[in-house]
């Protein structure tokens, strides 16, 4: 499972805002900290706000603040807002689109299936990992890494 940039930006934003849920931050502030495009990040934050993970605060000093449940919200919950993790072909060997339709030799199909099953295995482990880690657990991990 390879995460897109938007997904990573969303994870940074969620963890950044959840670390101090009482404080609101602007898209520009988060973008500067992680050296990413504010324009890009604004779209990401909009999606997170629509999902109820962050809320937008208007007015002077406005921005976004965390509005989810850090103990319940998992990394996978955030990832799923940006990635189609159940898309056909996810975790499988790439097919041969564009080649003429023909009945493939059984050895070729066997190779593709075998490679696909190994990639699917890796994918399943990645998904289980993302599902098992809550935002609260990540915040603990971040604190340990800072002090460790």
């Amino acid at each position: 499972m390879k995460l897109q940039k938007n997904t990573l930006f969303a994870l940074y934003s969620v963890l950044e805002s959840a670390s101090r849920p009482e404080r609101q931050r602007s898209a520009g502030e988060i973008a500067r900290k992680y050296r990413i495009s504010p324009h890009h990040l604004a779209k990401v934050l909009h999606t997170l706000a629509q999902a109820g993970v962050v809320e937008s605060v208007r007015g002077v000093g406005g921005g976004y603040r965390f509005s989810g449940n850090a103990k319940r919200l998992t990394l996978m919950d955030v990832i799923e807002l940006f990635e189609n993790i159940n898309a056909p072909g996810s975790g499988r060997a790439p097919g041969r689109s564009g080649t003429p339709r023909r009945r493939r030799a059984s050895s070729e199909a066997g190779v593709e299936r075998a490679v696909g099953s190994v990639l699917a295995e890796i994918d399943e482990i990645a998904k289980a990992t993302f599902r098992s880690i809550s935002v609260a657990t990540m915040l603990k991990l971040i604190r340990r890494r800072r002090h460790g």
């Binding site: 998992t74 399943e124 482990i125 289980a128 990992t129 599902r131 098992s132 880690i133 809550s134 609260a136 657990t137 603990k140 991990l141 340990r144």
Partner: peptide, 18 residues
């Protein structure tokens, strides 16, 4: 089991890693 999300999350919350 990797689909045992409840207990996996519990161990993760206690700081366990892969």
């Amino acid at each position: 089991a990797r689909d045992n999300q409840l207990i996996l999350s519990f161990f993760r919350s206690q700081g366990m890693m892969a």
